[in-house]
Design a protein around this nucleic acid. Structure first.
Lengths: 349, 349
DNA sequence: CTGAAAGCGCTAACAA
DNA sequence: TTGTTAGCGCTTTCAG
């Protein structure tokens, strides 16, 4: 408790510190910023640091920003209607990376509108955002807003075909392949695939991976049922009923995502079919508070959203020096839990 | 395309606009800010506006902020380990309200640590955040970080017992009561409650509501099974199996949240019990992409996270003039879907 | 009706 | 080794 303490209302300014330490304001800056080319005596430094501590002084970043042309702030643009699981995880990852760089996240959500995106990015730039993370929810191709060109930008879970902007994208094809392979390794030779929205990039990539894995095992993809869904849980339920109606079940079912897998689980249980004893079920996403919690716990392919967010922020900050300027593919590893088991029927279907 | 256009690299400054319009920099500000007490001729105004448009001029908000002591930025502090559904929805609501006020959200996540909270809020204040939204994920009592006292703050989904800070909190007791009432209205007289984490505020409040509704219907709460869970889907599953083991099922099951309800659904289906024909199931939260999508679709109690986020931002901005300074209770309305139906057994259990 | 000028709090080149 | 000074881009009081 010192007489010098400011009222809690007003922040101490640099000049207050200088006065208390008996030095000039510039010296305070030199000490605090470790300005290179400046040598400060140890004694002065201690006096300054003491005054800083006593006054609880913190530099005003708006002033610093004005002077230096940077704000220590990264804009995170969520370009989609939805704003759920993915955004939350990606933001968390990006946030953590930012914090350890001394940056903060300025967050906007475009609702999927390009006009709004343009507008909000302008807002971000007005506030001196140093860089942008432009994220979509469903992996897809996007139109990079013009405004984003004025500042370092990285795409997260999307890509701009005609722009040389770096992008972080999950390796969905490999994910589909490895997920399928995990099933093949369990001895499954008859696998149905209940897909997500057929038009989506991720859906197609995963399906390619599925087929590649089958072919790699000497199987003919055409002999495996592929039914189009839409990533909603109820489509998993509906498609399982379709499967049931059509005749004998496959020994394993791959689903477009975990929500569909939960729907499938519900449909199977309702029909008295046991998972994984009678049929194995596999999801995709490893959705937070869902995949690992349902019973049986879902085997799935992990979409590492948080990691992707972190990568984006790190790459922006130049934290990864030799980072590829182009598309970074992130691995989606299979995670095996209780909803899959060795195939019931013997090999050779 | 005019000769006056700046290179895309450098933003036009106010002085550029002034020069192009043939006026002084101050006049530009007067026009743009509609400064009261200043009268600008219509002709001058047009010239200025024309120059602004031509140069694509936008005021530098860091400079404005430095001058005015405000940044048009609200800090959103998510004070919890988790960062999922709730945060996403609340942030979305807060974001929308902020945008329509001309503000942007500066987002931080404390990971639940008070030390980190203090630290991050300081970071926020260094960047001149004008106000704070301090949000928890599970409704609960929090320790308001000292730093937050320096700026208008509103609590979201939490409360600080010993601080006179306004708070937006869901009316969990009423939610529990009305959810139970909906079941009573369907003729159910034997209702089991699979609760969330017993120690949590929300759990207790919902349970109070449950009991109040039963008493209101002339029933004795003690005759109804209450089993403690933990808000995870698997606890719903496990508790249903406990229920099954104990003897005849109740006609309806209330769950701590939707995830538990999904677990319960899975457990019931597995046991060959039909929902809602044999037993009705009710969730809580109306979780995005879950409650409405599972089959049968979950009847539940809607926790309006997005609305709460919006309310917080509006209240901060003074958008709601006569707003209560204290705790704002937000209504959680029951939403009836396919997982509930009229009680199988006749009244009088 | 319009312009000049004084800062907001800070950094950094230059002087001492 | 430390202090002086000129801005960063803007708002706003006060004169004209």
């Amino acid at each position: 408790m010192s007489d010098h303490e400011q009222s809690p209302e007003s922040r101490a300014r640099r000049v207050d510190v200088a006065r208390l330490a008996g030095v000039s304001p510039a010296t305070v800056s030199f000490v605090l910023n470790r300005t290179s080319g400046q040598t400060i005596s140890d004694e002065t430094r201690q006096r300054v640091l003491g005054a800083v501590a006593e006054l609880g002084y913190r530099p005003n970043r708006a002033a610093q920003g004005l002077r230096q042309g940077r704000s220590a702030t990264i804009g995170f643009v969520s370009h989609d209607v939805d704003f759920g699981e993915f955004s939350a995880a990606a933001i968390k990852g990006a946030h953590e990376a930012c914090i350890s760089q001394g940056n903060l996240l300025l967050l906007v959500n475009t609702g999927g509108s390009n006009r709004q995106a343009e507008h909000l990015i302008t807002d971000l730039l007005d506030r001196q955002a140093d860089a942008l993370i432009f994220a979509a929810v469903g992996t897809r191709s996007v139109l990079l807003p013009d405004a984003a060109r004025r500042v370092p930008t990285i795409l997260l879970n999307c890509f701009a075909p005609h722009d040389p902007v770096p992008a972080i994208v999950p390796d969905e094809e490999r994910g589909g392949r490895e997920g399928t392979q995990a099933l093949l390794d369990l001895g499954h030779r008859d696998i149905a695939y209940l897909t997500g929205k057929p038009a989506q990039w991720a859906t197609k990539a995963r399906l390619r991976g599925f087929r590649a894995a089958l072919r790699g095992a000497g199987l003919n993809p055409r002999e495996h049922t592929v039914l189009p869904g839409n990533y909603h849980a109820d489509s998993g339920y509906d498609l399982v009923r379709t499967l049931l109606r059509r005749g004998p079940l496959p020994t394993a079912i791959m689903c477009g995502n975990d929500r569909m897998a939960v729907g499938a689980l519900l449909g199977l249980m309702e029909a008295g079919i046991r998972v994984p004893e009678d049929v194995s079920v596999m999801g995709y996403d490893d959705q937070f508070q869902l995949a690992a919690e349902v019973r049986p716990a879902l085997s799935t392919v992990r979409l590492p959203y948080e990691l992707m967010g972190r990568l984006a922020a790190e790459q922006l900050a130049g934290g990864r020096p030799g980072a590829p300027a182009g598309r970074t593919l992130v691995h989606c590893p299979p995670v095996m839990r209780g909803s899959t088991a060795a195939a019931r029927r013997s090999r050779g279907a």
